[in-house]
Design a protein around this nucleic acid. Structure first.
Ligand code: FES
Ligand code: FES
Lengths: 159, 159
DNA sequence: AGCATTTTGGACTGATTTGGTACTATTTTG
DNA sequence: CAAAATAGTACCAAATCAGTCCAAAATGCT
């Protein structure tokens, strides 16, 4: 349902913990306690984030995890991609392989690609540093809908 | 994986068929033939679209379905919402009910809400009329990423 | 009135994905 | 060598999705 998986959700919560502690290293147990999540899932997510290059890990008795980059250099898109793979609203939105049953010339495929890029662009502009702060109002720009037909929904746009 | 369901994908393909035929009524079989989709799924989707108010239906021997509104008054967000319910990237992004385990004050919740509105806004600005045309270049505005840290990904933004 | 056609609503099943846990191996420190 | 921590993978239960099917109601035509 156009949902991000829980694992990715957890990942963002966990990474904000790292970000708000100035880049110190934490082990899985500490992260689990701070994020109030069960240790096994935390461990699983941390492993993936490390494999995908968002975290660095240190094994051994005083080991733990740390951010591989600065918080403002990690975007929400990066995090989601690390946990779920490439961001693609539909199968055909991302890759060149045409599908959807309709042969090579599906009329809506180009538009899906455009929609996908719009979402990807929005997600790629929000960084971990911003997620760690309450909410920066300057990043939200409420504007009137242009071609509406909709009821009173105001649309927010990430700048 | 941040995917739209296949039913919603089908719905958009099917509705573009309606849009490109000037609002005439079609029965389920005709739509299935034109969209090259199995009849049962087409029927299922048409039923939901009617129940959600995007199509009007006429029963009986010369019955069929027709668009309830003009193509430029139906947005992609409307279609997705009709098939999948409210657009919510996370459970907490949409409703007021706080969850995610963390009690009332989850640090990232406000940001999820912002992200959700950004996506919803992008989807709410693309209408069925635009989806039915090949691709209106003026609707895509490729711009350089602002706070990047990303490789060569250019971000498209819906205007 | 009767009949063919079409929508309506729901239930049902198999397949896929997700969420979460467990277990073993490997590395590091002391 | 022992303890603590990560790495990798395998596994299972639950949820969701995709697709099909059928009986019932409505409509138009003869
Ligand atoms: S190619 Fe994906 S909807 Fe047609
Ligand atoms: S309330 Fe949803 S992530 Fe915290």
């Amino acid at each position: 349902m156009l949902r991000v998986t829980k694992l990715a959700d957890y990942a963002i919560v966990m990474l904000t913990c790292f970000a708000s502690h100035g880049g110190a290293t934490h082990n899985a147990r500490d992260v689990a306690r701070e994020a109030r999540l069960p240790l096994p899932v935390v461990s699983k997510v941390l492993k993936r984030l490390t494999r995908e290059g968002l975290l660095t890990s240190h094994r051994g008795i005083r080991g733990g995890y740390g951010l591989a980059r600065q918080p403002h250099e990690i975007t929400v898109a990066d995090i989601i991609r690390a946990l779920e793979g490439p961001i693609a609203v539909t199968e055909c939105a991302d890759k060149v392989k045409g599908d959807c049953g309709l042969e090579t010339k599906c009329p809506v495929r180009a538009n899906w690609h455009m929609i996908n890029q719009a979402i990807h662009g929005a997600l790629g502009k929000i960084t971990l540093a911003e997620m760690a702060r309450p909410l920066q109002q300057q990043y939200v720009n409420i504007s009137e809908p242009l071609s509406t037909g909709q009821s009173g929904t105001t649309s927010a746009q990430v700048l």
